[in-house]
Design a protein around this nucleic acid. Structure first.
Length: 688
DNA sequence: GCAAGGTC
């Protein structure tokens, strides 16, 4: 490698530079303390461990080289403004400890980096190889060092070999990624700060109350998602679904059957069919099938999968699971948890790791069983999901000490999921018997299930399929009917909102990141857009009002597509097709138009939001609640509920042949009837 | 004080 070229043409050369060719003091900046240590380990067998203000860094010295490996702690800079009011289009980067007063820990790290930058000749951004990592390292070098003497190290895992190669193949700073990242920060800031301020000022000028309100590219579509479910549940009216359930006897065992493709439309049809079956006394076996299916182990955990499992098995909220996982990571018990990857790192010594895990008494039996079962052939299953910077979550083999119950529960899930990845598929037997009634076009069935081979369930038993016995049947066999009943069930509203459901939805539409989703969900509660009740998560009137207001005045911000739009813009910037300044100026223009329109309606919006906050009663209020009237003396929700009550009656009349009054009595008592529907019945029809 | 993004 030509040392002259590297030292003269930093930032312009298209070739690689080796860190070992740089003369003078080189400062390597990692994204987090743990990564810094791994980098130091990979670059040299010995180094000095030093510290400034309790911040540890590493110094490699060998007579020729002086390499300092230090670290950031995520972002050390944030966007801020000196202006009050809105619209606001001027902002600058400032140290995070100034912008967010709570972030005091970042002060020591930034101070240490400042001092190290001052005395260094070269800089290497060795933050995670993703857009945020590019921004984090760049801003530190820009404000404290010299970007023209800076390089980028590119690695996607912290294995020694990959790290060594990355530091021999340093490139110039990746300005394409940096510009795209800076742009994302600015766009989020412009939209978030301006719309949040618009909402707050509007309430403040109407009711003289200062209440914190917010909106943003990720939180607002998430709120819209739960708000749609809330409305659907509140307006829901169940309708009856009839089925006929025969019970048969075989070898002294009673088996209840279910209807296949239930064709029954009316109540009297159900009773007629039941009577017909009773008279017949027998059903004929139309078919009997047995089949086995094999179920592969689930992939190793990414954060979302871990959060989902901890919610399902232990009822933990996503943020609780995440903070436990972060603690386990800081205690060196598990790998980096904020990952989307379902793939274990290449080159991880599985055998060595399993041996370490077997030293932990809870797992020694399981590990020896696994080694026996696999005969030492360790090939883990992997999922499709990947992450540019981190592998799936796996245990490090470090022995846990003094974990509390919650920590143990999460750690246990991670270890078992890791073990299961190497285990064999489970084998499940399923059997289905279908029954027909001569002369009637109707089919009943019964199913059975058994476990042929536990496979990976031995290691990760939380999903174990249930066992349900079903005797063998012969085709054409006649089975005796012991009993026939008619069952009336009711249609169900969409499932109640849960935090994990919100997180899964955010993942599915790809908004937010592993590091932020749980926090953003909690933020919606902090703003009182959502509340936890004994009935589960409920969207408040304020939450519904915020969504409806934003849908009118800032419709872009309510949709998931804004994220897609930002992503396209960022890609264009990376390709050099467009400049950041141009993108920002277009965003300003868009916002400017929307804000003007919003301001023309401030009085009205202030009134609506204040009434939703419960700090103002509109003169034209709903007959049932304190919301503003929409039509016929009702607010929009109760008006819609009224419409719903009238239209769903048709279905009930056809099916049950009951009067309107009886219908109201009936649905009022059903558990899944929506809140607004019940309120209208109680109000308008004087029900008890 | 307001976003979303990192990480302790």
């Amino acid at each position: 490698m030509d040392a002259n070229r590297t030292s003269n043409a930093v930032g312009r050369g298209s070739g690689y530079t080796s860190i070992w060719d740089l003369k003078g003091k080189v400062l390597v900046i990692a994204e987090k303390p743990k990564a810094a240590r791994k980098i130091a380990d990979a670059l040299s067998q010995k180094y000095f461990v030093r510290n400034i203000n309790n911040v540890t860094y590493f110094e490699i010295r060998d007579g020729i080289h002086q390499i300092i490996v230090a670290s950031s702690v995520g972002h050390l800079y944030g966007l801020t403004t000196r202006e009050n009011g809105y619209p606001v289009y001027t902002y600058q980067w400032a140290p995070l400890y100034e912008v967010e007063k709570k972030k005091t820990h970042s002060f020591n790290y930034l101070e240490a980096l400042r001092r190290l930058c001052t005395s260094s000749s070269y800089f290497v951004n060795a933050c995670d190889y993703d857009i945020e990592g590019s921004v984090i390292g760049y801003l530190i070098i820009k404000f404290n060092g010299d970007p023209s003497r800076a390089f980028r190290a590119k690695f996607s895992s912290l294995t020694p070999s990959e790290l060594r190669e990355a530091f021999q193949k340093l490139t110039r700073l990746d300005y394409e990624m940096i510009e795209a990242g800076l742009c994302r920060h600015e766009l989020d800031w412009l939209w978030g700060i301006n719309v949040s301020r618009a909402l707050m000022r509007t309430v403040e000028s109407f009711s003289k109350r200062r209440i914190i309100l917010s909106a943003g590219r990720v939180q607002t579509p998430t709120l819209k998602y739960v708000s749609d479910i809330e409305k659907e549940r509140n307006l829901f009216i169940p309708t009856p679904v009839y089925s006929v359930i025969p019970t048969i006897a075989k070898d002294g065992v009673k088996i209840t059957l279910e209807l296949v493709n239930n064709p029954i439309k009316r109540k009297n049809e159900a009773y007629a069919l039941a009577e017909r079956i009773r008279k017949e006394g027998f059903l004929t076996v139309e078919s009997y099938e047995e089949h086995t299916s094999s179920i592969s182990p689930p992939p190793p955990f990414n954060l979302g999968d871990l959060q989902e499992e901890a919610a399902r098995i232990y009822g933990y909220s996503p943020s609780k699971t995440q903070s436990i996982a972060e603690q386990l990571y800081l205690d060196a018990l598990i790998s980096y948890p904020r990952t989307n990857s379902q793939k274990l790192p290449r080159g991880l010594d599985f055998k060595g790791l399993l041996t370490k895990i077997s030293q932990i008494s809870n797992y020694s039996g399981l590990v020896s069983e696994l080694l026996k079962e696999t005969k030492g052939f360790l090939q883990p299953v992997e999922g499709d999901k990947d992450d540019p910077a981190h592998p799936a979550i796996y245990p490090t083999g470090v022995k846990p000490v003094k974990l509390n119950n919650d920590q143990w529960a999460v750690y246990d899930l991670i270890v078992r999921r890791f073990l299961a990845a190497f285990a064999g598929s489970a084998v499940i037997y399923r059997s289905t018997a279908k029954f027909a009634l001569p002369g009637v076009n109707i089919v009943f069935q019964a199913t059975g299930q058994g476990i042929g081979n536990l496979g990976w369930y031995k290691y990760y038993p939380f999903h174990k399929p249930s066992v349900k016995a079903l005797p063998r049947f012969r085709e054409g066999e006649k089975v005796r009917i012991v009993e026939v009943s008619v069952k009336t069930a009711y249609t169900r509203p969409p499932q109640r909102i849960s935090k994990i459901g919100m997180l899964r939805w955010m993942e599915s539409v790809e908004i937010g990141t592993e590091a932020t989703r749980a926090t953003i969900i909690e933020k919606l509660f902090e703003r009182k857009y959502l509340v936890n009740t004994t009935r589960g998560v409920v969207v408040t009137d304020l939450g519904l009002g915020i969504v409806e207001t934003l849908e009118i005045f800032f419709p872009e911000l309510v949709k998931v597509e804004l994220t897609r739009h930002f992503e396209r813009l960022m890609n264009d910037i990376k390709k050099g097709a467009v400049k950041r300044e141009q993108v920002i100026s277009e965003a300003r223009n868009t916002l400017d138009v929307l804000i003007k329109k919003f301001n023309e309606n401030r009085e009205k919006v202030g009134q609506i939001l204040s009434s939703r906050l419960g700090i103002y009663t509109p003169p034209n209020k709903c007959a049932i609640c304190n919301r503003e009237e929409f039509s016929n003396g009702f607010c929009t929700y109760h008006y819609k509920a009224m419409e719903q009550i009238n239209s769903v009656y048709e279905e009930w009349r056809e099916k049950e042949g009951i009067s309107f009054k009886d219908y109201l009595e009936k649905i009022k008592k059903l558990k899944s009837t929506g809140k607004w529907v019940v309120e209208v019945i109680e109000h308008a029809y004087g029900g008890k």
